[in-house]
């Protein structure tokens, strides 16, 4: 396929990227290109210019920071999937990154590109909300701000990023002892995007679940919490029966508009989300213990 014409600018710093954005109305930021380029090739968008963030060193890399892990926006899924720092502190993020696309896609696709695209079927948004990530954003005037992941994803393909803003990093907390998190995915057989993605983060103390966060994606336009499931888990002993009973409440929490298509209707997704939640919870419980 052949994309329509556009200009190309390569930024060497975030500040330069912002200048280029301001100078090129209708321009789009190019990260790894794995969300944007297919859209352009199918001629579903026609930006005036692309501003390539790929050479901005300050946007790359995974490092320990502020009791958690800072992931530069231009860090690839492959780097995230294999990061020892993340594996130690917040392994669920690596676990989800390892399930994105395929080997070659993960080598070039980036966390920043993925979350800024905010595809409801993406894997990382669900997990980032579940662990309480924070998004670092550079504003047009050189100011920076942070937004909680839960507030960042505002709708299908819609985020809190304003005009001229650039996502620079994602910070995730270290889960800490006694906390385990896991991601379970039902992948579409063609696209490999999540039909249902379920993330669970559990804190266990003396064999009982002290705190549970259950977030699902794919089934909803933005990552969505399942409070009844979390409530049922909290205080439980996380036995197989307890997990099954709690996961059974997932459908009840999914009351709004749900995603649906010819492969998996919203009704189906609503009813089987619980099965994937149960898997995520079981895996998270095992890690928490």
């Amino acid at each position: 396929m052949y994309a329509p014409s556009f200009d190309y600018h390569r930024a060497s710093s975030v500040a330069e990227a912002q200048k280029l954005l301001a100078a090129n109305p209708g321009a789009k930021l190019l990260a790894g290109g794995h969300s944007l380029l297919p859209v352009l090739k199918l001629r579903l968008a026609a930006p005036s210019a692309l501003i390539d963030l790929g050479r901005i060193a300050e946007l790359k890399g995974v490092s320990a920071a502020n009791g958690g892990v800072r992931i530069g926006a231009m860090t690839t899924h492959a780097e995230i999937a294999t990061s020892p720092v993340l594996a130690k502190s917040c392994g669920i993020v690596a676990e989800a990154a390892a399930q994105i696309g395929d080997m070659a896609v993960r080598n070039r696709g980036t966390i920043g590109g993925s979350v800024a695209h905010a595809d409801p079927a993406a894997d990382l948004p669900t997990v980032l909300v579940a662990v309480g990530a924070t998004m670092e954003i550079a504003g047009a005037g050189g100011a920076t701000r942070t937004v909680a992941a839960a507030d960042f994803f505002q709708g299908m393909m819609t985020t809190a990023l304003g005009d001229g803003e650039i996502l620079t990093a994602v910070w995730v907390p270290a889960l800490g002892a006694g906390t385990g998190a896991a991601y379970a995915k039902f992948a579409h057989p063609a696209s490999r995007y999540a039909v249902i993605g379920a993330a669970a983060s559990l804190t266990v103390k003396n064999g009982a679940c002290e705190r549970a966060i259950i977030i699902v994606g794919g089934v909803t336009a933005t990552p969505t919490a399942l409070p009844s499931v979390a409530a049922a888990l909290t205080g439980s002993n996380l036995s197989a029966e307890a997990i099954a009973a709690a996961a059974g409440k997932a459908a009840g929490d999914l009351t709004g508009d749900l995603m649906g298509d010819v492969f998996a209707s919203s009704e189906y997704r609503r009813h089987v989300t619980g099965a994937y939640v149960a898997r995520a919870v079981a895996a998270a419980a095992a890690r928490a213990r």
């Binding site: 190309y8 390569r10 190019l30 290109g33 794995h34 380029l37 297919p38 090739k41 692309l50 390539d52 790929g54 080997m103 070659a104 896609v105 080598n107 070039r108």
Partner: peptide
């Protein structure tokens, strides 16, 4: 690309 597999249909030459 520099020894690492990439899908060349999802990559601009300029990149």
């Amino acid at each position: 690309v520099d020894g690492i597999a990439a899908k060349s249909c999802t990559c601009l030459t300029a990149q």
